[in-house]
Amino acid sequence: MTHSLAMPRRVALGFVALVALAPSLAFAQQQFDLTSVQKAQPRAELVPEAVKLLGKDVKLAKPGTFTIATTGQRLPFGINATDNQRIIVGSEPDIGRLIADGLGLELEVVQVAWADWPLGVTSGKYDAAISNVTVTEQRKERFDFSTYRKDQLGFYVGSKSAIKEIAKPEDVAGLKVIVGSGTNQEQILLRWIKANEAKGLKTTEVQYFDDDVVLYLALESGRADAYFGPNGTLGFKSAQTGTTRLVGSFSGGWPEIAEIAVTTKKGAGLAEAITAVLNAQIKNGNYQKSLARWGLAPEAIEVSRTNPPGLPRS
C-alpha cells in the first residue's frame, strides 16, 4: 500500500456515540461521525500490570506521552476530521487512545506518509506505528508487534443478492467477481479459479473497475455477483450505505493467517505492555466497541499476541 505525502500533524482525539455492530457477517446501515468532537470515544482505565511491564527504563519519544504514527488517509482506519484538518478520527486513533489510557500516558498522533513510519519508529521519533501494518516474518527482524485486528478480506454482494455465503473456493465457481488488479486478493482469487477448473467446476468471470461508482453500480445491478476486497474498507462502506452486505471473510494471507498489529521498535520494551493493555480492553469490552463503531467488528481478535508467526517471506 502506498500513500501520498502528508505533513506531520499533532492530533487530539475523542468520539460521538454511534450505532454498535454485532460481530456477524452482516453490517447494519450506520451513520459515522467524522467531526473532531468524538465525545463518546471508548476510554480505558489504567492497567497496572501493563505499566509494570513498561518499566521505568523505557525511553519514549516524549516523556509521559505515547506518540504514534498513522497515515490518516483512509476510512475506517483514519482520516482528517471534517471540521478540523489537524485532527484524525478513525479506528487506528481509537486503538492508540486505549493503549495510552491503559499505560497512563497522553496520546499524540502524527500523520505520516506510509513510507515514513518504519524509519520514524526505528529512530525513536515515534513510539509506535498504528497504521494497518500486517505482521510479517521480514518485518519482525526490525520491529516488535502487538496484534489488535485480523487482516481480513471480504466478499460483498448487493443487499438484494440471493447469495447467502461464500465460505470456500468452490463457492465462486460460476460467479462474476470484481477484484482489484495487482492485489493480494486477485492472486488468491486466481488460484481458486485455477483449482476449481481443475476439478471440472465452472470458471469465474473476473471483473476489474477503475471507478468505484461504476463498480458499485455493477454490483448493485447484478452485472457482477460479488466484490472481493479488503474487509475494513468495504465493510465501512457497507455500514455507511446499506447497499452491500458481507457474505464471506478470509485471511488476507490465505491460506496463512494474517494479523494487523501495533508496531514498535524491536527490543524497545513496549510490545509486552501494549499487548497487556489490549488484552485488558478485549476482556472489558472497550476494544470491541472501538472496532464496532467503525464497522470493523468482524475483524476483532479474541486475544492480542506479542510477535506471533507472521506471513512468510514471498
Rank of each mutant, 00 (worst) to 15 (best):
A167P: 07
L119E: 08
I95N: 15
Q85I: 00
K266D: 07
D94W: 08
T204Y: 08
W117M: 03
G180K: 15
K265S: 12
V121L: 10
E92I: 13
S91H: 13
K56H: 04
S238F: 12
T203E: 05
K125E: 07
A239C: 04
A224W: 15
I87H: 09
V58T: 14
V110N: 03
Q187D: 05
G14Y: 01
K199I: 11
I130A: 08
Y287I: 01
L75M: 12
D101V: 15
G253Q: 08
T136Y: 02
G158T: 00
F145A: 12
Q29G: 10
T147M: 05
G252A: 08
G174Y: 03
L201R: 04
V11Q: 00
A224H: 10
L46K: 05
I282Y: 00
L18S: 04
R9V: 11
E302V: 08
L270C: 10
S238N: 03
T122W: 07
Y216A: 02
M7R: 00
Q152F: 03
L107K: 08
A280S: 08
L105V: 12
E49I: 06
S146I: 05
V214P: 04
A44C: 06
P308W: 05
D212H: 05
Q111D: 02
D144L: 00
K52G: 10
W117H: 01
P312E: 07
R149N: 07
L13Y: 03
S290D: 15
G96R: 00
I95H: 13
L215I: 01
W192A: 02
A22M: 09
L46H: 07
G182S: 05
G64M: 02
F250H: 00
A44F: 05
Q187F: 08
D94F: 07
V172I: 13
G174F: 13
I188T: 14
V206T: 03
A61I: 01
P312L: 15
T203I: 04
G102K: 07
D225K: 10
Q185R: 14
I95W: 02
L60C: 04
W254V: 02
N132F: 09
D101R: 12
Y126P: 03
N132E: 05
N196H: 12
D33L: 09
A40H: 00
V16A: 00
A239D: 04
Q240W: 01
G248R: 06
A12E: 12
G124K: 10
Y227Q: 07
A162P: 02
T136E: 09
Y148V: 15
F66E: 13
A12P: 09
I166L: 11
Y156A: 06
P312C: 04
M7G: 04
Y148N: 14
A268C: 06
S146G: 14
K283Q: 00
T204G: 04
E108A: 06
T263V: 11
R97M: 06
L53K: 15
L119A: 12
S4W: 14
Q41H: 02
I257K: 06
S161I: 03
G158M: 11
G232R: 12
L13T: 12
W294L: 11
P76D: 02
E220H: 11
E299Q: 12
S221I: 01
Y148E: 14
E49S: 12
Q29P: 10
V37D: 00
